[in-house]
Simulated assay, not measured.
Amino acid sequence: MTAVYSKEAFGKNTTSEISDLRLKDILQKMPREIFIRNPRKAWTSVILSILMVGLGYFGIAISPWYLLPLFWVFTGTALTGFFVLGHDCGHRSFAKRKWVNNLVGHILFLPLLYPFHSWRILHNYHHAHTNKLEHDNAWQPLKPEIYGSLGGFGQWIYRQVRGWFWWVGSIGHWALLHFDWRQFQGKERQQVKVSVLVVLAGAAIGFPALFATVGVWGVIKFWLMPWLGYHFWMSTFTIVHHTTLDVPFTAPEEWHEATAQLAGTVHCDYPRWVEFLCHDINVHVPHHIASCIPSYNLRAAHQIIKENWGDAVKERRFSLALMKEIAQECHLYDENSNYQSFKTYHAKQSIKL
């Protein structure tokens, strides 16, 4: 079935029907150099992230208590840079050799306690089913009837994560989905098992060493708070990339790959220091058009997409107003308006009663 997206689904400035667009039509507009891996740029990015994380930890070590929040934010953001480079490794856009991508990915993910292969496999599934209802495994809205069946406590948890506590959502995603290798099959199960064991071994060595050298407060100061800062950005990037009032989720039978990747992904401008430390992961539309584009080429690719399909591209700026829109409105699936708020849902339930 061919998907037909209305003008509203693509934004107010859409002037042409693009429901017959194919991914290869978009890729053909991209020059070859957009996809070429550059070892110098890749390894320079790694060195830069290591230096920035080191600077953050140095600041934590020497700063008085009242400056610690500043360095926690900085270090957590710099650690997100580790994740973004590991993200390139997962998409094989960091290095040509698979073993290099796997090794670097495991090393960069280790401080974050993320099993590399389980994340890689689940994340690739997200790319294959972006904004496909009941399939996408990243931030899709529940159908009202599913939400209604959760029970009081389940509904409360869901309301927190889809509301003003969105920033802890990735912690639940990390804990619930990435350590159970039984959900994978064959070769993938063995890969995930290795990644999980690497993380567990790292934690078994690292945490006792931290407790022995810096104590409980040191673990909180040097690991927990920066780690929570990383998850703030992990949750924020993920939900903003695919969740605004004009982003459509579609049923599997109506889902259309090219238009879902192009119009179901949001480009969001953050403060430049955040984009610098996080290697432009916010430039997300071209990454969904072709996940093999290295992070250092995303801006050039985005410009090409804008020049050709600018009416379909959604661009926002990170702000309190944007997060208020997401936290107060983008809750449950609605086939007509994309989203239904919890307030609207419960009002309807009260009328029925």
Rank of each mutant, 00 (worst) to 15 (best):
G90F: 02
M52Q: 02
H287E: 00
G59D: 12
K193P: 05
Q155W: 01
G229N: 07
G264D: 05
I157Q: 00
V283E: 01
K96H: 09
D180E: 03
F165W: 11
F153G: 01
F116M: 06
T250K: 12
G310N: 01
P69I: 02
T130G: 06
P64D: 12
Q160K: 08
F58G: 09
W273P: 07
E134L: 10
L228N: 02
D280W: 12
H135F: 13
K221A: 06
L320N: 07
H346L: 09
P144H: 05
S337R: 12
E33W: 09
F74I: 00
V199Q: 10
A260W: 11
E253W: 08
T236N: 04
T44Q: 14
S170N: 08
Q328F: 12
E254L: 07
F179N: 07
R316W: 10
I326M: 14
F232P: 07
I304N: 00
D334M: 12
T44Y: 14
K187I: 08
I157V: 11
F249S: 09
T44R: 13
E8V: 15
D334E: 14
T14P: 03
P115V: 14
G202D: 04
V247D: 00
V84M: 15
A312Q: 12
V216E: 09
R37A: 13
M30G: 02
I107D: 08
S118T: 04
L103P: 03
A258W: 11
C89R: 01
Q160I: 11
W273H: 05
F222C: 11
V194G: 01
D136S: 03
H242I: 07
F276D: 04
E335S: 15
N137E: 00
W164F: 15
W164S: 08
A251H: 07
S350D: 08
K193C: 13
N137K: 15
L21E: 00
H135I: 09
L108N: 06
G206C: 11
Y5V: 13
Y5I: 13
Q183F: 14
L70P: 01
G76F: 15
T75P: 01
T130S: 14
R40V: 13
P144W: 10
Q340T: 14
N308K: 08
P208S: 04
F35G: 11
D20H: 02
G264N: 09
G163Y: 05
I205A: 04
A138N: 03
W223I: 04
W309I: 05
V198W: 13
G56T: 00
L21P: 08
V285H: 03
N131T: 05
E315L: 06
F165I: 10
T77P: 04
H331V: 00
E329T: 08
K98T: 10
F74M: 05
H267R: 09
L113W: 07
E335D: 13
V73G: 09
L298M: 11
E325W: 05
Q261N: 08
K143Y: 14
H346Q: 08
W174L: 14
L67K: 01
A263Y: 03
G163T: 06
F249N: 14
S337G: 03
W309A: 01
F165N: 06
E188W: 07
P39C: 01
W43A: 02
P144A: 09
A300Q: 15
L150P: 00
A290F: 07
I351H: 02
E257G: 04
A95D: 09
L122M: 12
L142N: 06
R317N: 06
W217L: 15
H331L: 06
K324W: 14
C278H: 04
A327E: 07
K98E: 15
G56Y: 03
A175R: 05
